[in-house]
C-alpha cells in the first residue's frame, strides 16, 4: 500500500472539510473494496476519510411505507434487521448474500452503491424498488444515480447520507454468484409496487439496467409464465471468463422468472 493520511471524522461537516482540504482524498465506508484495491497498489489516495464513525450515517428506520437505511449500515445489519425483513424482505435477503459473513460485517450499503461495481447486488435493489439516495446536498433517484461502470451521479466531495426505499407489494432478488468472487455474475431484482413493475439487472452489463420488456409483460400478469417467449438481447451484455453475453442473457430470463415466482 502507498502512504496516505487517515482521518476518522465524527460529523459530515468535518468530513466535508477534510475532503476539501486534501490533495487527492478518498472517502472510505466499510473498506471492503478500497482496502484490497490499495493493497494491490491500484489506488493511491493522499487521504483516506473513514466515514464509519459518523452517527448521521447510521441506522435503519421506517416511516410510513418507506424504509430508510443509513449509508454506513453494514450488510449484516440490513440482513438481520426486523424492520427490513418486515418492510422489504427481499432487501434483507439480498444483503445476506453479499460477499461472506465477515465481509458483511464491514461492508456498507453506502460504500457499495458509491462504488457502483457492475457486479454489485445493491444497485439492482435500488433501481427495482425506485429508491432515493439522499446525499449531503440533494436527493437523487436511483435510476439517475448509477451512471456508468464504477461511476455515479455523486459530485466531488458529495456523500451519501442514506437510501430510502418505498416498500413494494412484492419483491424478490435472484442472484447467480460468480463461483470464485461471489459477486453477481448476474442478479435480477423484481419489484411490484402498485401499478408499476420493475425488473433491474446487475452483473450482466456495464452498469445496472432495467429490463423494460420484462416489466411490460409482468405489468399485466405478474407470473413467471408472462416472461415465456421473451428473449434477452446480448447487446451491451458483458462477456468474460466466467460467462458469455449469451449465457448472461439466458440468466436474466431464468433469474427473472425465478424472482417473480419467489416474490409470489
Amino acid at each position: 500500500m502507498y502512504e496516505f493520511e487517515y482521518h476518522q471524522p465524527k460529523s459530515l461537516e468535518e468530513a466535508t472539510k477534510l475532503f476539501a482540504d486534501a490533495d487527492d482524498p478518498q472517502f472510505m465506508a466499510g473498506g471492503q473494496t478500497i482496502i484490497p484495491v490499495m493493497k494491490q497498489r491500484l489506488a493511491m489516495p493522499s487521504d483516506i476519510i473513514d466515514l464509519g464513525k459518523i452517527s448521521d450515517l447510521q441506522g435503519i428506520s421506517v416511516d410510513g411505507g418507506a424504509l430508510t437505511i443509513g449509508a454506513m449500515t453494514h450488510h449484516n445489519e440490513v440482513a438481520g434487521s426486523d424492520e427490513v425483513r418486515k418492510a422489504i424482505p427481499a432487501l434483507a435477503e439480498l444483503a445476506s448474500h453479499i460477499g461472506d459473513p465477515a465481509v458483511r460485517n464491514r461492508g456498507t450499503i453506502g460504500g457499495s452503491i458509491a462504488n457502483n461495481d457492475p457486479a454489485a447486488d445493491y444497485p439492482a435493489a435500488l433501481v427495482a424498488l425506485g429508491a432515493t439516495v439522499q446525499t449531503t446536498s440533494r436527493e437523487i433517484a436511483a435510476e439517475d444515480f448509477f451512471t456508468a461502470m464504477f461511476e455515479t451521479a455523486l459530485d466531488e466531495g458529495e456523500m451519501i447520507v442514506n437510501v430510502t426505499f418505498p416498500a413494494p407489494e412484492k419483491a424478490a432478488y435472484e442472484k447467480f454468484p460468480n463461483p470464485a468472487s461471489r459477486y453477481a455474475t448476474t442478479g435480477v431484482f423484481v419489484a411490484k409496487t402498485g401499478e408499476s413493475v420493475r425488473v433491474a439487472v446487475t452483473g450482466a452489463g456495464a452498469c445496472v439496467f432495467r429490463q423494460i420488456d420484462f416489466e411490460k409483460a409482468l405489468l399485466g400478469d405478474f407470473s413467471p409464465s408472462a416472461l415465456d417467449g421473451l428473449t434477452v438481447s446480448t447487446d451491451g451484455l458483458n462477456s468474460d471468463l466466467h460467462a458469455s453475453a449469451e449465457y448472461r442473457a439466458n440468466l436474466i430470463s431464468v433469474l427473472a422468472k425465478r424472482a417473480v415466482k419467489h416474490a409470489g
Partner: peptide, 20 residues
C-alpha cells in the same frame, strides 16, 4: 488456469477469478 490466447497474459491471477 486460463491464459489469454493472444497476449499470453494470465487471466486467472487471483481468487476472484480462479474458483476453489
Amino acid at each position: 488456469i486460463v491464459y489469454d490466447e493472444d497476449s499470453g497474459q494470465l487471466v486467472t491471477g487471483s481468487l476472484m477469478d480462479y474458483a476453489l
